[in-house]
Design a protein around this nucleic acid. Structure first.
Lengths: 348, 348
DNA sequence: ATCCTCCGTGTAATCGATTCCACGAGGAGG
DNA sequence: CCTCCTCGTGGAATCGATTACACGGAGGAT
């Protein structure tokens, strides 16, 4: 493969001049510029990014470590991250942690070894050794979706509190009183927050959240199935199950169907994270939608700000409730309720 | 950040010896080995992969350019590729082409600039300039899922012919005669092949495939919606629509629902590529499942074989039909048919 | 005419590793 | 005791770029 020396030879100039042309340095004659361009063209030369990175100590690459690629929410996040990074002149290397701290650490260290310019992480837990080391090592870093308390890193996320309150209002209005949640791992912020928001909202209606109605999941489909089976075996099963992410909702659907029960007649279902398929499931699933694209964009901008020496600030965007039919038909409820103000109805 | 020189100083040895220890070179004394290990530990030293790559001319990195990350099929493929690569000691950089040749080229050249050791591609079209250049440039390469005819590169894919024949047998058995297809781009092998297989299978039953029943899609949901709307406006709409990928099936579902029609009563639906959500859609969708994980694994193995100087061969794995309810209830059909032999029924 | 500045260019150091080659010490074989 | 080989080690070249510094020539000011 042709190197910069070959180009210099072909153009009859020194490598320094060639490099200057390549980097748009002002002090190059028009003649030299033309000859270099011609030589580059003739040889099909492409600069070696590895060599360049070694010298300049920057790779123009961002690392993105996400919890689970198979989760459509994270896929969409990854896509918008790559898109925004590309417009800013950066590439993205994605690492999939599969909700496993050890895998997460593996990717973090691999990315650091490659000297990426900055790291975007949605941490799987409360701080694996590699993660904390990275944060301390001074690599520009931004947390997205989830974060680690006590670590001084900007956080870009969405706040589901209001939407969860809307959801509970919606459920209460439909007459449901026994509400259960499939929680995410307690070691994640989103895992804890969603349960907390749910408990608080329930409290506003004087409803309890007994331990039996809190199932411990891990954001994967299988755990949603397992927890839901547990709920269904209770002497007094919940009327509605709220899954803290879309994969666990899928698992819940599996479990409910395996029992031969019907949604929403026998049991209601709601999920955190909205995905296109929820419109076409049987029945369409009521969900809390995050502004995923905006999250990805904001995260990249915050990170690039840090990389390029600007402050880089945290961002919190609101999530919103999307009502569908999986918790019961509107109007079929018994109680009368205050109108759910910021709720939007989706018309497919 | 500590470099190899710092380690050498700390250990009281030369950089050469440190390097030898790091790379497991045999001719190093036990004493030196211990001192280096201690120094590495003390300084938290990690070798700079950029420098190493420059010198050794290998990055231990694979590039994977896929057509669309938002398509669950490709997500799963990407995941299995990364998994297999990791066990073989390679990292993977994913590029998402979004079915756009220009974006595909962008990623291919970026990856080549980074001097990845090998490239895995599922080409968006019949050969964008960058792709062909890469193939000629001598970078080890393997096509996965889709390929480009006439380019001498191993192909790892699945053959859906038999499964499509099973599907048509199933539909015919159910009494359906007017069968339409939402095709993928004619510039992709999978786009063409699935139509061809469908047409052939139809032929075996003496059924025609009129042009009006071939809708041109682009593997994205929106095109599925548009094409299906067209089908529904025909004087004689098809009885069943077969979408050549899962996203177009999603779009078809949208269009059907928007018209207020019901699946399968008013119109049947089947899809290429099976995904977990198809079990829970309304109704569950009959689909052709590819052995995605195995495809990813085989592709990586073929590529790594090429990289490490071994031959690296093409692989074709069979797809299989998964019958659900979206084309009609078994037994509700009118015609009597030969029993669909290799068809498996899925019990959710 | 002299001096200074600016511009375009080239030479060489540098980034952080790997690896060829040389060298000295120590052991084996004659 | 001398020679030869092996082993462990260090010095220095190298990978392909960027960039500080030096230098020569042109042009303007005095």
């Amino acid at each position: 493969m042709a190197g910069i020396k070959d180009v210099a030879a072909e153009a009859g100039l020194s490598v320094a001049t060639v490099s200057r042309v390549l980097n748009g340095h002002p002090s190059v004659s028009e003649d030299a510029r033309r000859r270099v361009t011609a030589a580059v063209e003739a040889l099909g030369y492409r600069p070696n990014a590895v060599a360049r990175s070694l010298r300049t100590d920057q790779t123009r690459t961002l690392g993105l470590v996400i919890s689970d690629v198979l989760n459509p929410y994270f896929t969409e996040l990854a896509r918008s991250v790559e898109e925004e990074a590309r417009t800013l002149g950066y590439s993205v290397i994605i690492g999939n942690a599969d909700e496993r701290p050890d895998l997460q650490d593996h990717h973090v260290t691999t990315l650091l070894d490659r000297r990426i310019d900055g790291l975007l992480v949605s941490p799987t837990d409360d701080g694996s050794p590699g993660m904390l080391a990275a944060a301390r090592a001074g690599t520009p870093m931004v947390f997205v979706d989830r974060w680690i308390p006590g670590v001084d890193v900007p956080v870009v996320r969405s706040d589901g509190r209001a939407a969860v309150r809307d959801l509970v209002a919606h459920l209460h209005g439909l007459g449901h009183r026994r509400l259960a949640i499939i929680a995410g791992p307690a070691a994640t912020t989103t895992g804890r927050e969603r349960v907390e928001a749910f408990r608080e909202a329930l409290g506003e209606y004087g409803l309890p959240l007994p331990d039996a109605y809190i199932g411990q999941g891990d954001f994967q489909a299988e755990s949603g199935r397992r927890v839901t089976e547990g709920f269904l075996e209770l002497a007094e099963p919940p009327e509605v199950v709220f899954a803290a992410d879309n994969l666990m909702a899928l698992g819940a659907l599996d479990a409910i169907r395996a029992r031969g029960l019907r949604v929403p007649d026998d049991i209601g279902l709601a999920a955190f994270d909205d995905i296109p398929w929820f419109v076409h499931t049987d029945p369409p699933v009521t969900a809390i939608a995050q502004p995923t694209r905006e999250l990805g964009r904001a995260a990249v901008r915050a990170l690039v700000d840090r990389i390029e020496g600007r402050p880089g600030s945290s961002v919190t965007l609101p999530a919103r409730l999307v009502v569908r039919r999986s918790c019961g038909e509107p109007g079929s409820g018994h109680g009368i309720d205050r109108p759910p103000s910021p709720v939007r109805r989706s018309t497919p």
